[in-house]
Design a protein around this nucleic acid. Structure first.
Lengths: 334, 334
DNA sequence: ATGAAAGCGCTAACAT
DNA sequence: ATGTTAGCGCTTTCAT
């Protein structure tokens, strides 16, 4: 059977209170006692039950991570960093892929609360911000990842999407493209990238048109689909800014299928700088997010929040970086 | 404060025992009572504490997933399937990336046990099989993923690696290559692929040489490194079988850097058929694993094991499928 | 059909 | 310095 604190106490000839004290490193006691107990714990291969101590209001040492899709390399890469950092602090993480679907978001959130996770890292959009608001009101430690919500009043860790969008678009303009189509998602981060895209129009004296915005969800298939749609337009397009690498790859594949050479006939910029951007041919020009820094930081923040050390709700913004690879080039007049 | 079973009982004018019965759908009671309780639970937004019921020996509704590296697309893709299927059954999954490192394997396993996960899906190698043996002896529900261990006596879900290795190698031989180098990992699955590779030599009357085996760990960087090493050999090599897509991509990148055209000067086969295989250029010829089927199946199996329904320790083998894309071609005599 | 009460493994006053 | 004891929120006999 499972060895409990009683077994240890009995074998060590002390009370369970004493054992509890050595487990939690609290209270004072003689070194001999402590050592004796420690020794017995080893002998019996005793491991305190997280359940029992959680029931007493202690931490579960578990984090909940809500992402749109763990199979999207951007999220799996950041999840890996989060996982490592969390484990360093003795915490494990339960992952949940929401597909940005409100029903799933609700369901997983409830599940995670029932499991009494100590804190939540949310990278899923939550169109219905009231759910999150409720959580915050109930003092559930919560940090936003890849997005910020001023109204929510929680710390957030994200890249400066606005600047990223601005730089991606500016890069295209400075290459001589006159008309840049943006493929965006319905997420807060995409929204900011879109604003950056608009700002770039102003900065470069280009006219902005709503028609140049295409909206979809992140996937290679959707990227390809959007590209097909773009091809149907009468005006020939020479430049596309896809709001993430998955979408960009879809465009790239579409272009290849149609025999449209990149970057000669079409320039393309992605976002995220996942492994995908580095392995395609031509390699993808994209906006890099400091994935590792962000992942590490977000767990540091959530842990501080859990410990109640954080009162200031800061917005932590990382600098995006344009990585020029092979999918962008000067516009060629035909 | 948190609403407990007592609050519900009080408000519904019944005892906590009754509430417990409606929660668990056990025992008999009048419909009015049940409905009244249900109603109050809604009203109070009550959610039973998993901690408390777990302490009573009930399930935690949590699965532990041990993979080498969640940021490897193969594992993130299968993790996504696992997660979805688990959630369908009301279970969440804690992910752990071991890097095939024994220390981490031990640590995570202990953590998972302290958290009383209901079952374990292990896709990490565990060089020290005794750890797993101990688990099995202690009746911890456990299923192996992507590997099998006859001695362990647990159900396993994997692809037929032997056949996969055989087909990858045979494909290369039938294209006229005389010398195929294999880049393998130190994992059970790679070992089987390697046996398949050897078998292909026999089948095609080729001489097998230990020198053609290069060992490393899964990563793009390592793939590239191995390729560099291969280039140093005096004998020119025209064909490489990399035991997973990550490694293959590394080779592909190395070849590109050195100006070695694929598949003209070098044919390359990967394994897994992850998103990477589909997005590189040239697209990677690889051995596909039915990721979705495997992921779904492994959670079905672990759940059955948890419920004690499974006594037969079966070995579930999926059929690999050679996907010929653009990195393999007939050998060109020079 | 419903309730009282014991106890799961642990923590945290409060005693000694 | 160490032990006693009362819960934490729930499940489960066993009564009623």
């Amino acid at each position: 059977m499972k060895v409990t604190i009683y077994d240890v106490a009995a074998k060590a000839g002390v009370s369970i209170a004493t054992v509890s004290k050595v487990i939690n490193n609290t209270g004072k006691m003689r070194d001999v006692t402590r050592h004796k107990v420690l020794e017995v714990m080893k002998e019996l291969n005793y491991h305190p039950s997280v359940m029992a101590s959680a029931l007493m209001g202690k931490a579960t040492e578990t984090l909940g991570l809500l992402v749109p899709d763990i199979s999207n390399p951007f999220f799996s890469e950041i999840a890996r960093t989060i996982e490592d950092r969390a484990h360093e602090q003795g915490m494990s993480v339960i992952m949940c892929s929401t597909d940005e679907n409100e029903v799933k978001e609700r369901k997983y959130l409830e599940l995670l609360q029932r499991k009494q996770v100590d804190g939540l890292i949310v990278a899923s959009s939550f169109n219905d911000r009231n759910i999150l608001k409720q959580l915050v009101k109930n003092d559930v430690p919560l940090v936003m990842l890849t997005q910020h919500d001023a109204a929510l009043g929680v710390t957030s860790v994200s890249v400066d999407d606005f600047t990223g969008g601005f730089e991606a678009t500016s890069h295209l303009f400075s290459l001589g493209h006159k008309n840049v189509i943006i493929i965006a998602e319905n997420t807060p981060s995409s929204k900011m990238r879109l604003y950056g895209y608009r700002e770039a129009h102003e900065a470069h004296d280009m006219v902005f048109s709503e028609d140049n915005i295409i909206r979809t969800n992140a996937s290679v298939a959707n990227g390809k689909k959007c590209f097909d749609e773009i091809l149907k337009r009468e005006q020939q397009t020479t430049a596309i800014f896809a709001c993430n690498d998955l979408l960009a790859i879809g465009v790239l594949q579409g272009a290849k299928e149609k025999g449209i050479s990149v970057p000669d006939r079409l320039s393309l910029v992605g976002f995220d700088d996942t492994i995908l951007a580095k392995t395609t041919a031509p390699a993808l020009t994209t906006i890099a997010q400091p994935i590792e820094d962000m992942g590490n930081r977000v767990v540091d923040v959530i842990i501080e929040t859990i410990k109640g050390k954080i009162s200031s709700k800061e917005r932590i913004l990382y600098k995006p970086k344009l990585i020029v690879r092979e999918t962008t080039g000067k516009v060629i007049d035909s």
